[in-house]
């Protein structure tokens, strides 16, 4: 795991030949932010929709990466925590009519607390046992979403009132989501330069050894769990307000596996990895659909839609297996390789 610590320690420990690369890196981030802010001016409604979705998924993936990538706690219930945030935030909007940012914060706090409750088993169990506890969280919360009809609206869900930010409609919402995503990304990046964040990594590497170093393992694990859930809550609150509907089917086991896949494909314990992974996994089905629409008819495939969803599953699985097999550091690892090539010459 030595190399993953290196990634986790991040860009502060650049080697001297990489100095120039560091400048490029900063320039790259600035260019990305400018591009993101400038996007609404030129983009169509569809592009804007996908961009907003990507930004929301980035928030959720960054959160899951804190739990799974940095703290090494396998969570298979991430989408349930997203659901907690979405429902809490939607209920605030419907019954109290409070502003979006407040709702999202409350959603995040709710998800944090629920995350702590289901993280509690991690005090005594670890590894795959914990994974099952999170699976139990997934099922229990889904059950609550579906069955507590007076509050959650059952299968039909809740419809969320429209939010208009600065009178800019979809563009305003997009900018808000991007701003939140940027703030949360920077927060998670800085977290791993603090004592708490370093403790996550120490616990992941060897929890007994971390304990010897004076880290409170139990508190650290719980916090890592809760923080991941809190990020999920933010993503959920934004997602509800964005899609304007919250129903149980958005928060299934498959959605949880989707975010796990985003973490693995992007790169564990890497901010860049979360960004790349979430972007890639969100856009992959769209790219696949576009490709099939072009390639399908000439190849004689008439039932493109029926063929597409199993094909997506195959590619989805193949991506996970392929990355674990060939590049366990994910897309971020590929970027690292490019960096190594660039700085060597």
């Amino acid at each position: 795991m030595a190399d993953s610590i290196d990634i986790a320690a991040g860009k502060t420990t650049q080697l001297v030949p990489g100095r120039q690369w560091a400048y490029w890196q900063v320039a790259g981030w600035i260019a990305l932010i400018i591009a993101l802010v400038a996007l609404p001016a030129t983009a169509s409604g569809y592009v804007l929709f996908m961009a907003t979705l990507v930004a929301i998924n980035v928030i959720a993936t960054v959160g899951l990466n804190i739990t799974v990538g940095y703290a090494g706690l396998l969570s298979i219930g991430h989408s349930a925590f997203i659901g907690v945030g979405a429902y809490a935030s939607a209920l605030m909007a419907i019954h109290l009519g409070t502003p979006l940012l407040l709702n999202v914060m409350v959603g995040s706090a709710a998800a944090f607390l629920v995350g702590l409750v289901f993280g509690a088993p991690s005090l005594r169990i670890k590894g795959v046992f914990l994974a099952i506890a999170t699976l139990a969280a997934q099922y229990s919360l889904y059950f609550v979403f579906q069955q507590w009809t007076p509050v959650t609206g059952g299968d039909r869900g809740l419809s969320v009132p429209q939010v208009d930010i600065l009178g800019m409609g979809d563009k305003g919402f997009y900018l808000l989501v991007v701003a939140v995503a940027v703030v949360l990304c920077i927060a998670s990046r800085n977290l791993f330069r603090t004592r708490i964040g370093r403790a996550f990594i120490a616990v992941r590497e060897r929890d007994y050894a971390a304990q010897v170093l004076g880290i409170d393992v139990v508190r650290t694990k719980l916090l890592a769990f809760g923080l991941g859930a809190a990020y999920a809550g933010v993503a959920g609150g934004l997602m509800g307000a964005f899609l304007r509907i919250v129903n149980p089917d958005q928060f299934t086991l498959l959605a949880s596996v989707f975010f796990l896949a985003a973490v693995v494909v992007g790169g564990q314990a890497s901010l860049l990895g979360s960004l790349l992974g979430a972007t890639f996994m969100t856009l992959m089905p769209e790219m696949l659909r576009a490709t099939m629409e072009v390639l399908g008819p000439p190849l004689g495939a008439t039932d493109v839609a029926g063929f597409l969803s199993p094909l997506r599953e195959v590619i989805f699985g193949a991506m996970i297996v392929g990355f674990l097999y060939f590049e366990p550091r994910g897309l971020a690892g590929l970027v690292e390789r490019v960096r190594a090539l660039a700085t060597r010459s």
């Binding site: 396998l74 796990l260 693995v264 564990q268 699985g317 996970i320 297996v321």
Partner: peptide, 23 residues
């Protein structure tokens, strides 16, 4: 490899098998 890698591989294999059966 760490547990999470092995677990994720079985998830991936499951997804591939399900997709293949569907296809």
């Amino acid at each position: 490899q760490p547990t999470i890698v092995l677990v994720m591989v079985t998830f991936g294999v499951g997804s591939i098998l399900r997709g293949l059966a569907g296809m």
